[in-house]
Design a protein around this nucleic acid. Sequence first.
RNA 1: AGCGAGGUAGGGUAGUAUGGAGUGCCCGCCGGGCUCAUAACCCGGAGAUCGGUGGUUCAAAUCCACUCCUCGCUACCA
Length: 548
Amino acid sequence: MARYIITSALPYVEGVPHLGNFVGSVLPADIFYKFMLLKREDAIFICGSDQHGTPIELQALKKGVEPSELADKLHHEVKEVLEKFECTFTMYGNTNSKENELTVDEIFEALIKNKYIIETQSELAYCNTDQRFISDRFIEGTCPYCGYDQARGDQCDHCGHLLTPKELIKPHCVICNGTNIVFKETRNLALDLAALQGKIEAFINGNKDNNWSKIAVTHSLGYIKRGLEPREITRDLKFGFKVPYKGFEDKVFYVWFDAVIGYIGITRSWSDAWERYWKDSETILIQFMGKDNIEFHTLMWPGILIGSGLGFVLPHTIIAYEYLLSKGIKFSKSRGIGLNLESAIEIAHPDYWRFALAMLLPETSDTDFSVERLIEIIDNDMNNNIGNFAHRVLSLAKSIEAKRPEALTGASADLVKKVNSLISAYEEHFEKVQIREALHDVLEIAALGNSYISATEPWKYGNANGSKELNEIVYTALDVVYRMAMLLYPFVPASSARLLEVFEYADEPSLARAKEGIVESVHINKELVKPIFSKLSEEQIRKLYSLK
RNA sequence: AGCGAGGUAGGGUAGUAUGGAGUGCCCGCCGGGCUCAUAACCCGGAGAUCGGUGGUUCAAAUCCACUCCUCGCUACCA
């Protein structure tokens, strides 16, 4: 039987993720994983914090703390906020772990043995005061183009020019503020992607039809066409895993290298069962990411896995998202301002964000986010269509004890037939990882339900029990609400659960039960009947606009 | 500059891979209906030479070429 590993690109922990970070990989991965749960598939959902790299080391230096302490603190903050957004990871780990280091070392040794690691040379700035190499972002000076005196070695934030450290006028070291900087040759180790190119290309061509995002295919083949070059896997930094190789002991692995391997390392932190997933040919690995992460997952990561020859499964499906572009409100992670997940949760329940972001998933092109659009989705699609449908039906059912009719007739039979075909469409869309479309199928079910109520006019029968027609209408409508509640689970888990609670015999949500519908007479808990959603209040809207 | 994405009714979008009547969705507008429901819901209607030009084709929003706009990235940020 097939087994699934679902991964989301690992958030880099330099701050609280913003909506763009969330929508670009963790959210869709979580929604998809919850669909796997609905289907009762054998699936694990792996994610975690990417902790190494220059920004963290620099931040730690500025704060005067150990990088690993800072990275762990940020890791816990990010984990907590993602869990508040109802993400149910099998394991949310981190890259700076023993298990990951072990995995990185094993894979590195295998790559050495298989001769896929080569040496490179480059010139790098060296601070004589600190006695260490300093990366581009550790150097500041005056921009030769605009004269801005706090330009960094990689780019000037003032005029946007890309720079090299050598171009800076009066360069100084960010760590010690000194100017005793020289340029020295440094050696690094690199993954020989050129040697692996044929195998990587075969991997892409052999898997790209497994529902890969179009952008993932075009980007990957574009890189292949231009030819792959060796990619460095070590850096002259302090924070990271030490390189266990003679002559390179004072260096660490480059952050991207241990980040992708982190998928395995994190699974290893989760359970001894990790090999059952990662080394079983039946395993289907489905990876979610933003478009800027494509090359790491379709070129370097498969290159590492293939080159190691250790029998790890390769990605089966690559799902890459375009960007969510904010209009009017800032998304910023590093600066901690604007609409990040912390500020979002203070404004509305996570389900509201999950729903709206699922509607806005940038599956095929960059997508605009605006407060106006958010209001439209929440008020109209979520509240008026789905929420109101559920509530009007449950309100009807409060005074009528619906019994299962012997057979459905006319409009009722027609509705159930259409709902069944929409459930099939929902399943098919999920299987093709078209999450936005699957949500549209649920919206369509609610719209059909609303039409059905209008057409059958249950209020005509008065509120007395006994009429066969009325019984059939209420039963059928309740049945649709019940199914819809189950289908909502991947998107809005808390609201789905609240809706299902009203049905006294409700089970855990499952796709099989959604297809089957209500099998017995319906008992609802009248006390629990209340609207599941509401429109955004003026207060909420005011808060949203205040984030500009 | 390099790389990438987009231009479809008043606004916002889906559709473009595998060409087949301008098909769909949300908002807005016009007209009607309903009162179970959260000023919610339902039905009908108006409104588009699918950015432009040229080409391929029996047939183009969809394929090709050129062109004009818009936006994003080029920070180890998704």
